[in-house]
């Protein structure tokens, strides 16, 4: 009788210990997420909620390193407005803009004032990464910076393609670049096509162009000269 009871008791105890360990781990994991802000000069006025950090500002948020000359936020750091020479590094990716707004809790970021983004992408693991350059008026970043939505005067360069559109969505999970509105794609050899929607698949290395009844896909391909690929 007793050994069976002992076994049950030890099983219950083990389960309790496991549950406790899991709870502690969960709490620790929850505490891990942080935003840190460093700067040379911190300014706050009496009875005001706004805090300004200036000169050599460095912000660590998610896996991004943000540097700028000025950052402003409310005491509870729900959102941060970052200005002057904003430079964001996330792994190899670099984004530059004059102005950046960060919704800290929602993990949503908007660059504005003329954005220059450089993403690096390797088709296969171990392969050398290739740069995708994107210029736009604004750039929204979310989903842990995996998704980026460029809007207004979008221009992108990847390999020997130059792409222009009204909007572009870079999805690093799906590994696609979707361009929307007056899309124009040109290769170095002079080939081009225009459409209303174009999707570049980084894995398949294909571009799919979509037209509409009013605005069909137009294209011109240059046949390689003899001896050229």
């Amino acid at each position: 009788m007793f050994p069976v009871r002992k076994k049950k008791l030890s099983l219950i105890l083990s389960l309790l210990v496991l549950l406790l360990t899991l709870t502690v781990l969960e709490v620790l994991a929850k505490e891990e997420e942080k935003i840190s802000i460093d700067g040379d000069l911190f300014t706050m006025f009496f009875n005001e909620d706004i805090i300004t950090v200036e000169k050599s500002v460095k912000i660590l948020y998610m896996d991004m390193i943000i540097t700028a000359e000025k950052a402003q936020y409310k005491r509870n750091i729900e959102e941060v407005i970052i200005e002057d020479n904003v430079l964001v590094r996330q792994e190899d990716n670099i984004i530059k803009s004059p102005y950046l707004w960060v919704d800290v809790e929602e993990e949503y970021i908007i660059f504005s004032g003329g954005v220059e983004a450089t993403y690096f992408y390797a088709q296969k693991e171990g392969e050398e990464k290739e740069a995708i350059y994107i210029w736009s008026d604004t750039l929204d970043v979310w989903d842990g910076a995996a998704s980026a939505w460029a809007q207004g005067n979008v221009r992108a360069i990847y390999q020997d393609f130059t792409l222009t559109a009204e909007e572009a969505h870079l999805d690093q999970k799906e590994e696609t670049l979707t361009m929307l509105g007056n899309v124009y794609v040109e290769r170095e050899d002079g080939s081009w096509f225009s459409c209303q929607k174009g999707v570049y698949d980084f894995v398949k290395e294909t571009i799919t162009a979509y037209g509409s009844a009013e605005d069909k896909v137009k294209s011109e391909f240059i046949r390689p000269k003899d001896g050229e690929n």
Partner: peptide, 14 residues
């Protein structure tokens, strides 16, 4: 009515 701090480092848990 101003408070200044120099060479500051702030860490906020989310």
């Amino acid at each position: 009515e101003e408070i200044n701090m120099f060479n500051i480092r702030m860490v906020h848990s989310l």
